[in-house]
Design a protein around this nucleic acid. Structure first.
Lengths: 202, 202
DNA sequence: ACAATGGAAACACTTTTCGTTTCTGTTGTT
DNA sequence: AACAACAGAAACGAAAAGTGTTTCCATTGT
């Protein structure tokens, strides 16, 4: 069932939802754009909410895979944070105020499911990063890993509530600051020295 | 009738339409946001289409006034074009693919009226600029003013059909290129010298 | 010839929003 | 105190748009 047509449905639907807005694009519009009938489309998705969920889920999977690859490489914990920084930032930019508004109002279950998925991924990723940094002597041993990870996620969520438009580059600034503060708060002297050197090179 | 409340209705409605999308924001939402009842709102606008029209018209008036001010100052025709360049560009950025899509599909009369209004303003502005440039020896005397003005408008319209997202900075590039070519195509040697000097200072 | 598949479009139903109206409370005036 | 005017909240009836289902038809493969 994970065939080329299914991939195309998700990718192309996602593109036109993002371009024109979820509620402005009807299932008829999607079929017209894709050149398939509704009967065919409904062989792949249960309903519009299901389509939206599957699109966001697939999108999230790309993000999750990127994070997982960074972790699997077993590199330096600070390098990983820096690599993840801009990737996560641009992922968040897709969630524009209008999209969030629509998801919350008309597809609340999809919204809950997706954001819980994201929350879980981030929590796991940060926890793993914290543990690796502690083990490598870059982060302080006395950190309450669970608490720091939760605080990180909380900060992400608060940034997300700010409802900036996707063209607003304040996202990068705020986001980068949050990452910067997070790292500075948890590093050892060795880790700080490494981090400062790395920042100077950018 | 042009009172503070009316101004506030237009400004605030325009803001949330722009943030959340025209069709995602109901008249009820607008009233809730403004803290007024629908009965009050309908004292100021006939219906939703009328509200949208009035918002876009007011927005256009700001733009038109800016252009008029530049013309009234009687300055150098090339300087005026350069002053107008980025103003027009950011004005166009408000017309995102989703907004255009909605206007065309659900409010076609509003769309036609607004774009005809814009077209007329641009045509008049460019025509006035061409005549001033010719009079001042910056533009060539052999120009067919009417034809050049129409070509300029045509180019603007074609850029507008490209459906770029508002975060895409290709708009500036394409737009700037179109302005550049327009000016280079019509200047006298004196005008070109002046223009090149001006461009070097930027 | 028949079966399977998929597109186009009709269909019945649902949902949302629209614009209108009613009810109520508040304020100002006499 | 009584009355008029005004505005907000919400109910209301109607319309529009969209949803998901089904039918009809054409095409392709066996």
């Amino acid at each position: 069932m994970k065939d080329e047509r299914y991939e195309r449905i998700l990718n192309e639907s996602g593109r036109i939802f993002q371009t024109y807005g979820i509620r402005n694009v009807s299932m008829d519009d999607i079929c017209t754009t894709l050149g398939i009938s509704k009967k065919t489309l409904y062989q792949y998705v249960n309903n519009k909410a299901d389509l939206i969920f599957k699109i966001l889920e697939a999108h999230h999977e790309v993000y999750r895979q990127f994070i997982q690859d960074q972790l699997d490489q077993g590199g330096n914990a600070i390098d990983i944070m820096l690599a993840v920084d801009s990737f996560v930032c641009s992922e968040m930019k897709n969630y524009t105020p209008d999209n969030i508004f629509v998801l919350k109002k008309y597809y609340p279950e999809v919204y809950q499911a997706i954001f819980e998925m994201k929350r879980t991924s981030i929590l796991e990723g940060i926890t793993a990063n914290l543990n690796a940094g502690i083990r490598d002597g870059l982060y302080r041993k006395d950190l309450d890993v669970d608490l720091v990870a939760r605080m990180f996620v909380k900060n992400l969520e608060e940034i997300h509530q700010l409802e900036m438009s996707s063209s607003d580059n304040s996202y990068e600034k705020i986001f980068g600051t949050m990452y910067d503060h997070h790292i500075r708060a948890i590093v050892t002297p060795d880790g700080l020295e490494y981090y400062e050197k790395k920042k100077q090179r950018q």
